[in-house]
Design a protein around this nucleic acid. Structure first.
Lengths: 201, 201, 201, 201
DNA sequence: CATGAATGAGAGTTCATTCAT
DNA sequence: GATGAATGAACTCTCATTCAT
């Protein structure tokens, strides 16, 4: 038996990334199809075509896959929303920029909301927190506090903002995604209005 | 000869109610202690002292217990918040009455929030919808619409209210319950302020 | 509530017989519907409307019900086939009388064959022996031996007859019952022919 | 680049065959010892020494094991009875060859008949049809029809033969196996006689 | 690093049976 | 004799995880 064992490490590395991504994709599809609680590691790995043992080279449990999915999502949302040279002239413009990007992103990646609004058992989960989400919210707070310090935004209850921004945008996003016609503009406006007035900014 | 043919089923009936309640209580404690996903039917039944088979005379799965817990909670919240002869003179007063009761009730019955903010796996906050919650929110909408029709409240976006009231109060309640000193007044005010202004009422 | 509890024993006795019969009927239907192996005591008692505990006043297991069904069947078959003043002039006529009655009876009471030819699991049972069947076959042997002694029938291998009569008639009966048009005459003749010649009578 | 990708699966493959056979053997012994209805999957797997979960890598239920046992038996019987260059000069010789082999085989492999004539519940003799038995009987019919076409056998009711051959040989085999002294010759002759005459060949 | 059969703890569930009413 | 909820042993089956190849 002759084996060419001189794998260049680039190929191996690529394959690792590919497998990890395959597991995550399979996880998304399986969580949507069966619901989180009903999904097993076997379900996920089965739909990748990889061997069951291979799963454990990448994750230790389906929960880790779930967190990876949400964290990836949070990171992407963060990057999308953040990545910016534009200087808003006030809080409303700030929100308009951020929220437009958020709702756009969500409508282009509906999977996360399909995972959350599953109808597979009697319990309908509608919000999940993972470490990355907390980081992203913290980053947002900092950014706002900067603007307040610089006098671009007036002073307001940023902690309250940080507390409600996720539940409110999640609710609106889920509502939006459940509509036949997805009207990003409408939900963005609604959200800006509600938040600026609610926070008195 | 006189025979009471009801087999003295009063006792039996009473026992059935007692057992059902025991399972629900055990469910609450176990969900808090182990987290929903990690709880098994056996965990619940074990801590009731009943036989394992007895569980299935009352529920078909732990999810059914979970729903029973949340539905009971929703019903109680609903009853507490609703039960009312007081006529509010405006929306702010209406919210003050309702939200005060809500936060009071929550602080007297923290179990549901302890179930929701579990830290047992990597996913550490979630929120749950059950049929009864939907019913209660619907009831609230009707009540508000009545007041709008009567001219007591001005016209505003009641659907938006219905959409955000749960996530916002849940977030605030969880925040409140995680504090050392529970300040019902503070959270009530914060919430009234945010909602009245946010909705422009 | 007033109840006349002075049951005359006749009524009670009647009720016992009625309940027993109800259980047997329910057993037949359930065995046909679900297959013997898959049927539980609860399945049987459920479809009688009686309480589960009541079952045990009549039978100790589903197998006892099964045996009761088959034994009743064997007894009835026996009575039908036996009940006779007619003196056959030879073995062929003897068989004609008996087998005609047998196939007629079977076609009027197909339940037993529906129990045996169930398709509920991979295993297709096609013959079941119970004590009463053995008794009935013994009785038949005696009758034949009498006729042989009296010189009405010639001498032949009655033990072989006793051994094959059940499997052969069962097979033919099942074949007959599976046809669209049930032709009693055809199967009777086929059977007489086969047996008289096979046994050399 | 040449890779032997078979992971030395020869050993693995061998082990799979060994395990499957072990389960079948354990099934035979357990069915004999406890009766089919009373045997559980656990009983079978326990007496193999394999882990309980391993059972389900091979079979889905005890019934599948039972069918495997009977099908293996049917296949072996078929091969034994069939495998032949000898040209019989008539139906009697044909039967003599086949039935001798059948009764010999049965007496060398009594397990199947021990499974069928269990005394573990009140029902104490039964017979089982599996796909392979049907195939083997069909094969036998074809063979006979060939000989009839060729004029080696006279025309006779082959369907009747196919219908009764199993029940009759089963009955005789069971009778034979229950004797202290197993007289293959006697039962073969009895069977040939009965069948040739019964079918008028 | 991938494979996939074996493992065995343990989850869910059933169900014959009991027994207080 | 009838009732039917409670019992708990025991069954079926799953599934995360391991590990030899």
């Amino acid at each position: 038996m002759i084996v060419n064992n001189s794998h260049n490490d680039g190929a191996r590395e690529t394959n690792k990334i590919k497998n990890r991504q395959a597991i995550i994709e399979a996880g998304i599809q399986t969580f949507i199809a069966k619901g989180v609680a009903e999904t097993t590691v076997r379900d996920i790995i089965r739909s990748t075509g990889l061997a069951s043992g291979t799963f454990y080279n990448y994750f230790n449990s389906k929960e880790e896959v779930l967190v990876a999915i949400f964290d990836d999502f949070a990171k992407e949302i963060g990057k999308t929303v953040r990545d910016d040279d534009v200087q808003p002239k006030d809080f409303e413009e700030f929100l308009r920029i951020k929220l437009t990007r958020f709702f756009k992103f969500v409508s282009s990646k509906p999977e996360i909301f399909m995972i959350m609004s599953n109808n597979h058992n009697l319990v309908n989960t509608f919000s999940i927190n993972t470490p990355q989400f907390i980081i992203e919210i913290d980053y947002l707070k900092e950014e706002i506090n900067d603007y307040i310090e610089k006098g671009v935004f007036p002073n307001f209850d940023v902690d309250l903002f940080a507390l409600v921004i996720r539940p409110i945008t999640d609710s609106l996003a889920q509502e939006m995604m459940s509509q036949k016609k997805i009207d990003i503009n409408k939900y963005t406006k609604k959200c800006i209005n509600f938040l600026t007035r609610g926070l008195g900014v």
